[in-house]
Design a binder for these strands. Structure first.
Lengths: 327, 327
DNA sequence: TTGTATGCGTTATCAT
DNA sequence: ATGATAACGCATACAA
């Protein structure tokens, strides 16, 4: 027999019916010592493994959760994905992994696909669709860094506080002209609050603020260099920059090229505190957000939703300033 | 009707049988203009989507491929994963994502799980199991960076050539005492060839070679700092280091702390050329391996295997030295 | 303690 | 051009 054995094969060679084997597999009901042993032996002998597809069909439950992020190339999402995978697998769930690349069409296609695949829920870290398209999903959903609707729980770090801390820190360190590089503000993300806080605190602190955005394709990293260089060309007197870690890395890079010393001439504060942050030279001062906790919470929430439990709609994690050498 | 509609519901409300609906869905056989239109309408109205689980069960094919990597936190694997996902989804396949964290038990559990889930094939980037355990899998398999057996195709960069290029470059730049930081050599990985090439070229070039390994838990990044510092403590006269990008980043970091200038006092060459490499200060000279092409090829090979086609067992991609500022 | 029958949602075969 | 039915592999309700 070359094809992979089914429960029928096990039953047949063990001389019982599939019901009994199923019972053995699921440890339900009574089954005699003898037949139990025999079934066990046959299973080993045939190298039988239950077909999870068939199980899923019967149970109306796949034990799979879909995860959609922009791309795993971005260290924040790579780390987030790792956290999600760890928590999910610990709970007996598997991850169907999707990269939207922040393309509307792709994201929509993935949502559709996950629906067809009957995933038990979706963790969404990419947000290019309209509010309705998320609400009409008819499936547990939790978002990262975006508040879509009152009925959809979201997880985020305290972006506003992070923006505040970063800006305050730059001002305290003596910066007088501040820049913030943010993602594309037309995307409805909570990270936009960093920008608001930045502007607010800059004004309070009488520092001149400059804000520049990336393209809509926020994760086209190749644009970052040009963006940063454009910033310094236009505003040579900038002495403090706030931007998420990956962008901050480009800032440090650009400074090195232009002979501007960090932190002496320009101070830089990141956001995220990904692995890379502490590996830059100078080591990056940054706003730490608890990526692992966020991933864990995302899984906890989605599982609770799947179980039909009540969950908090707002899940904002505290951030903290990690002062290193770039300020 | 609150539960999600099935093909039966569509059939019922459209006044036809499931057969006809199925025909419509799969565009097989003839169906009249009128019923076609009606079915289409009902599908929209009911918001029906086919159940992929049931389809998979019938077709004996899930259109899912399993991917096992150590962790997405590591930028190489994050980028590899992104490449794999892109190619797979373009071909209509989905990714069941697993992180082994390089733990034998986890990896084994995942393999088992993927088997139960009837994935069509597995791309394996984590290698903690014995040769037999991979061979007895009874399912298409392709490995990244490990040659397991004549019958299992593998993809890798030309590690030996990479090691050679890196070492040669350091020697040409005038280094006389070279260190190589590698993973744990007890793991049977092709990247170990970098080490062999390193030793060979160092001797040829009359440079004194030092090799240090990481723990078995290669991806416990927290050990890297101590490792690098230990290296410099024991061998203060090292003037050239070869190590994969992430480790190289730690080397640069350690040098900065110790007041050793890169590249003036110590020259550093990485391996991988991940995003981070060009963002370090100084920008890292490194051996570029074509991560995206490797991911694409992994998918191409696994799909060919699934289709029962012949595939090349050996897939070694060329590498090149990217000279930047750390040498 | 074990077996029989049925259904999960879909597709394919064979009728009609 | 459409319908009835079996089958995919498994698990449950109900019998025996």
């Amino acid at each position: 027999m070359s094809r992979v054995p089914t429960i029928k094969d096990v039953a047949a060679t063990a001389g019982v019916t599939v019901t009994t084997v199923s019972r053995y597999l699921n440890k339900r009901g009574y089954i005699s010592e003898a037949t139990g042993a025999k079934i066990e032996r046959v299973i080993k002998e045939l190298n039988y493994v239950p077909n999870e597809i068939a199980r899923s069909l019967f149970r109306q439950k796949s034990s799979i959760i879909g995860v959609i992020i922009p791309t795993a190339i971005h260290p924040f999402f790579g780390e987030l994905l790792a956290a999600i995978e760890g928590s999910a697998s610990a709970a007996g769930y598997k991850i169907l992994f999707c990269e939207s690349r922040l393309e509307r069409g792709k994201e929509k296609g993935y949502v559709e696909m996950l629906k067809r695949h009957k995933v038990d829920g979706i963790i969404m870290g990419s947000h290019t669709l309209e509010v309705d398209e998320y609400c009409d999903l008819g499936m547990p959903l939790v978002t990262i860094d975006r508040k879509i609707d009152e009925r959809i729980p979201y997880i985020a770090s305290d972006n506003r506080e992070g923006g505040r801390l970063a800006t305050l820190h730059l001002i305290e360190k003596g910066c007088t002209k501040l820049a913030h590089i943010c993602g594309n503000l037309s995307l409805d993300m909570l990270s936009n609050q960093r920008c608001e806080a930045f502007l607010e605190e800059a004004r309070k602190g009488s520092a001149e603020p400059v804000v520049i955005q990336t393209n809509i394709d926020v994760f086209d990293f190749s644009q970052y260099s040009a963006l940063v260089n454009g910033l310094f060309d236009e505003h040579p007197d900038i002495d403090g920059v706030f931007a998420s870690d990956l962008k901050a890395a480009h800032v440090i890079q650009a400074c090195a090229r232009r002979g501007r010393r960090v932190p002496e001439d320009v101070k830089v504060v990141g956001y995220d505190d990904v692995l890379m942050a502490s590996l830059l030279t100078p080591r990056l001062t940054t706003i730490h957000q608890p990526i692992e906790a966020i991933g864990e919470q995302a899984v906890r929430i989605i599982l609770a939703r799947i179980a039909g439990e009540e969950v908090p709609m707002t899940n904002v994690f505290p951030v903290s300033l990690v002062e290193r050498d770039s300020t």
